[in-house]
Design a protein around this nucleic acid. Structure first.
Length: 302
DNA sequence: TAGATACCTTATAG
DNA sequence: ACTATAAGGTATC
């Protein structure tokens, strides 16, 4: 086992590990007590490990916890570079916050979850996760990804336990809609199977969007089955490094209605442009994620 | 092109 | 206990 420590003081703006991995950006981390997402009010992040399995290259288990001012990690590999990418440890939170509007709701969201970072998930896992997210609660999206890993993911041994990597595109391409429905995916089952097929055959790959202008990248991702503008924005923001992407989900739509009514333009593209500008442009997605987590957890109702 | 509707399943509220 | 409702929407008509 390899292990290491990352000093929180060394990170610009620090980190809140629990908020980062439980805020509905990533569904690829498991809390070691198995109770992830069960109760939003529950805190105790100083005691919990979160574990993920990196799949590119050979599968590698990575687990990390935060306590006493450090991130402690243990892994089958030297995981420092992976953690830096997965948890966006090089983002300067203070600089990013300075780009956010000086509204009460935005500033309260930043205050409440200060240290929360965006994630940078592997593209395929992010794509499938957010296809599954349609009309779903955060806790169930997470359990669906666990089910996919348990059913189709490669096994990896670590520290006396067996973990499953996220399924490969071909593993999901080769299964059936019926099998995926049995796992509880509902009408998302054919979307997942057909999208996996597109990736497995080489017809399209989510990573290809990188390098395109933001709106072209979003359009490009909607080629996948089950991917509309909202899911495309999630993949851009939480996997492909487009920090300006603002997914227009039910929460941000109600935020627009209540706090930014002038940004409602009647269609996704124009409303997206308006709210993106209102939230500061370049890092608008960061602010969106703070708002989402703040409102979804009811932290504004105290 | 814009608008309405069906869609799986389950946790939660009443 | 039982029903209605909503959950980080998309595809189709």
């Amino acid at each position: 086992m390899e292990q290491g420590v990352i000093d929180v003081e060394s990170l610009a703006g620090g980190i809140d590990l629990q908020a980062t991995v439980e805020s509905g950006q990533s569904y690829l981390w498991d809390r070691d007590d198995g109770e992830m997402y069960q109760r939003d009010g529950a805190t105790g992040g100083d005691a919990w490990y979160w574990t993920t399995v990196r799949r590119d290259g050979s599968p590698a288990v990575i687990r990390v916890r935060q306590r006493d001012g450090v991130l402690e990690w243990e892994s089958t590999i030297d995981a420092k570079a992976d953690l830096k990418r997965l948890l966006r440890l090089e983002d300067n939170l203070s600089a990013i916050r300075k780009t956010a509007p000086d509204d009460d709701v935005v500033q309260s969201a930043y205050d409440t979850f200060w240290g929360m970072r965006l994630v940078q998930d592997p593209p395929f896992g992010s794509l499938i996760s957010f296809i599954c997210s349609a009309q779903m609660r955060v806790a169930r999206i997470h359990s669906m990804q666990q089910a996919l890993r348990d059913a189709f993911g490669e096994e990896v041994e670590f520290d006396g336990r067996t973990y499953n990597a996220y399924p490969t595109p071909s593993a999901l391409a080769e299964t059936t809609e019926a099998r995926l429905r049995d796992l509880g995916l509902g009408y998302r089952a054919p979307y997942v199977q057909r999208t996996a097929e597109m990736v497995a055959t080489g017809e399209a790959n989510p990573g290809e969007a990188v390098g395109l202008d933001y709106e072209d990248a979003r359009e490009s991702l909607t080629r996948f089955v089950g991917v509309g503008d909202k899911v495309a924005d999630c993949v851009l923001l939480f996997s492909l490094d487009y920090l300006e992407a603002v997914p227009l989900d039910t929460w941000i739509r109600s935020t627009i209605e209540e706090y930014y009514p002038e940004c409602e333009r009647g269609n996704y593209t124009d409303t997206s442009r308006a709210i993106r500008t209102a939230l500061g442009g370049e890092f608008a997605g960061y602010t969106q994620t703070y708002l989402f987590h703040y409102l979804r957890t009811g932290s504004n109702e105290d």
